[in-house]
Amino acid sequence: MMKSPTRRRRLLWIAAIALAVSGTAWGVIRAFNDNMVFFYTPSQLLAGEAPGGRSLRIGGMVEAGSLEREAGTLTIRFRITDQQHTVPVTYTGVTPDLFKEGKGAVAQGELRNGVFVASEILAKHDENYMPPKLKN
């Protein structure tokens, strides 16, 4: 079926176009890689890899036992960790239902004197789906 020279030429053309487009896309993605990151980890933040002087997001686990609620207000304090480094976070407002100690979270805000002041908290749930009794 592929014997005809016209068809072979067309196949080569479409392969060449697909290759050129994928190559360009790959280059563009490499160039924009830093902007494709939705959040930075505490290690990246402390290593100075996150852009300074503007609002950014950090993500990781809410360290078990670190969550404190200030009595009579909506202010909370907790530490966010990637198992290597931790960053203290403070936030005033309502948190999503799945925001819990030992679970993933993403905070948007800025680092002020070593404390991450968050303006928004999002819960990051994992990819595991299990009925309650099977939960470890």
């Binding site: 939705f38 980890t41 993403v106 999002l122 990051k124 994992d126 990819e127 299990m130 099977l134």
Partner: peptide
């Protein structure tokens, strides 16, 4: 897989332990 996302990873088709009952 490539980037940090808010969206969770793959439950099906990812290597490793069963992630879904």
């Amino acid at each position: 897989v490539f980037w940090n996302t808010l969206h969770q990873g793959m439950s099906i088709g990812a290597p490793g332990a069963a992630r879904m009952a």
